[in-house]
Nucleic acid binder design. Structure first.
Length: 543
RNA sequence: GGCCUGUUGGUGAAGCGGUUCAACACAUCGCCCUCUCAAGGCGACAUUCACGGGUUCGAUUCCCGUACAGGCUACCA
């Protein structure tokens, strides 16, 4: 078999050699110990928390070692390609402040960074492999492939295109020429020399030593459209983009053997590999169930962005599940930046990580509790502008009022800050009662109408806007006494049956009337902010 | 079906043959403080590390089986 002739036949237009590309993409001149990592998303729609999880690890390892972190768009699958997906990816990474040094939309010396634009490079190496007898064209149609698979299942043999099932593997040149003349479509497959009976141990940077079985599949390298599959693109790109650590999800463990064989065939030096665990999620109904991240829209980053989760807080959360020792470091160094933490691959978990919303929320609370008033306002303004533009004037028309609302809500006036703000939408929700446009009555009164009216009427009669907090509460106590409610909490707790309720219940009644909820920050302060007229009107509404 | 990977409490998770081996954090639950909420203080929360064997003076830690979970087995990544 004249492999050179075959190669020319298949790729007449390709004339670039390996040497050409090796020179075009020289080994990077980097300081000792510097690592080159990449994030390589596919533009197939939304990106989820798992992508960020990986990207953050990539970014940390690269930058921490004074290396390079680049972005490559893996757009080889046009069937799954979604319009605008690249923009979503870029804007999301921008929102979460994941900064890459080179790559898509940024450029660099190792591009192009969109795989579709690298077709010629892949083909050059496909040609090289063919000329060396390490790859060959396959003219099997989808139907034929299905037939093979059916037969294999019937015979209880492993499915796939390999060994004796690989019908085009040793096809004579004439037969190939014939098909070519007919203009039949073909793919290029690797001619695997592996034996699945043979096992090797392989060192993974995260998993440690793992068993890898030799590959024997004649995997597709180039699809009929001349675009590579993931496997081939991975080998070529990570070699010529001079990646030093391939960090990716553990779903790639199963095809690692193909990649190892490919690097060997191509004569490329093998990069280090680091396979991360897959992020999973707790089911809504409370039962612990591991879900695939793929189909779960709640894991979409847009979802968190639209809820107004602070990007930095999300990163803190991700770091805590990325490296088990991060959390304790961060507790000790609350003022330090994430970037100062020494991230290491061997501090990553081995088993699947469940996404924990409670934990995320807790981290967000503590993070936002460190905000100044100005930071909080900027953050909220930005969010309202993007997602609730119609409410911008309601919230920020009168900034002085907003300052007071947030000061109270954040507990800026307390020695210890409040920690109940999780994300922007939740904050807006929690302060919605201040504005008539967004006010809703959410909680019911605990007592009957007659009792409620009695309390509220007495309150209106005695209310004076100029009273201070102490005076205000004294008056509430007076009302409590008049209505038969306990004013001494201790006494009430000992013998609750002696009263209708306590001052707490009286205060709650007023609170429900004014803010529509049983719980809120200090009521006197709220009424000070809302003003006497509006507060009293709220009460009159329910009489 | 075959192959690979994993299995410590509600969750994340430390532990890497033996005097804190069950750390820490979140969640939950009590109590205190308190006009509610939040915050804060104190305390509770795995006699046990999926199960069954084995190695050993001794195993959560090593070995073997079983079960369960996840992944791969595409001209998807």
């Amino acid at each position: 078999m004249d492999y050179n002739k075959l190669a020319e036949l298949l790729f007449p237009h390709i004339d670039k050699t390996q040497e050409y590309y090796e020179e075009l993409f020289p080994v990077r001149d980097l300081p000792k110990g510097a690592e080159v990592l990449r994030m390589a998303p596919s533009p197939t729609g939304f990106i989820h928390l798992g992508n960020l999880y990986g990207a953050l690890a990539d970014e940390r390892v690269a930058h921490q070692s004074n290396g390079v972190f680049y972005l490559r768009i893996e757009d080889t699958d046009l069937k799954r390609k979604v319009e605008g997906a690249v923009e979503t990816i870029l804007s999301t990474f921008k929102y979460f402040n994941i900064n890459y040094d080179e790559g898509a939309e940024l450029g660099g010396n190792y591009g192009p960074y969109y795989q579709r634009q690298r077709a010629e490079i892949y083909q050059a190496f496909a040609k090289k492999l063919v000329s060396e007898g390490k790859a060959y064209p396959c003219f099997c149609t989808e139907e034929e492939l299905n037939e093979i698979r059916d037969k294999q299942t019937r015979l209880n043999e492993g499915t796939g295109y390999y060994g004796k099932w690989a019908v085009w593997r040793d096809a004579p040149l004439e037969k190939i020429e014939e098909r070519l003349k007919e203009g039949k479509p073909f793919v290029i497959r690797m001619k695997s020399m592996g034996n699945p009976e043979v096992k090797h141990t392989f060192h993974d940077e995260i998993k440690g030593d793992i068993v890898v079985v030799e590959n024997n599949m004649d995997a597709v390298l180039l699809k009929t459209d001349g675009i590579p599959t993931y496997h081939f693109a991975h080998a070529i790109d990570d070699h010529f983009m001079r990646t030093t650590i391939v960090l990716r999800g553990e779903e790639w463990l199963g095809t690692l053997n193909i990649h190892l064989e490919l690097f060997d065939m191509l004569g490329f030096e093998l990069p280090k590999y680091a396979h991360t665990t897959v992020l999973m999620k707790i089911d809504e109904n409370g039962t612990k169930r591991k879900l695939s991240k793929r189909k779960d829209p709640e894991l979409s980053l847009d979802y968190y962005r639209a809820l107004g989760y602070h990007p930095y807080a999300v990163k803190i959360y991700l770091m805590t599940i990325l490296n088990w020792n991060f959390e304790q470091w961060f507790l000790k160094n609350p003022d330090k930046s994430i970037d100062e933490f020494k991230f290491s691959l061997d501090k990553m978990g081995q088993s699947g990580t469940l996404f924990d919303l409670d934990k995320l929320n807790n981290i967000c609370k503590t993070y936002l509790a460190g905000f100044t008033l100005e930071q909080m306002k900027d953050y909220l303004k930005e969010f309202v502008k993007t997602y609730h533009a119609d409410l911008y004037d309601v919230y920020f028309g009168d900034e002085e009022t907003m300052d007071k609302i947030l000061t109270l809500g954040m507990g800026l006036n307390l020695k210890k800050r409040r920690k109940d703000y999780i994300n922007a939408s939740q904050i807006l929700e929690s302060i919605s009662f201040y504005f008539d446009e967004t006010f809703k009555r959410e909680d019911e009164f605990k007592y009957d109408k007659e009792q409620v009216d009695e309390i509220l009427k007495l309150f209106i009669e005695s209310y004076d806007y100029s009273d201070d907090n102490g005076m205000w509460f004294e008056k509430v106590k007076t009302i409590a006494e008049k209505c038969g409610f306990a004013t001494d909490m201790k006494a009430y707790k000992e013998n609750p049956e002696n009263w209708k309720g306590s001052v707490a219940d009286v205060a709650e009644t007023i609170r429900v009337a004014v803010v529509g909820r049983r719980n809120s920050p200090d009521l006197w302060s709220i009424m000070q902010i809302m003003g006497a007229e509006r507060s009293i009107n709220r009460i009159k509404e329910v009489l």
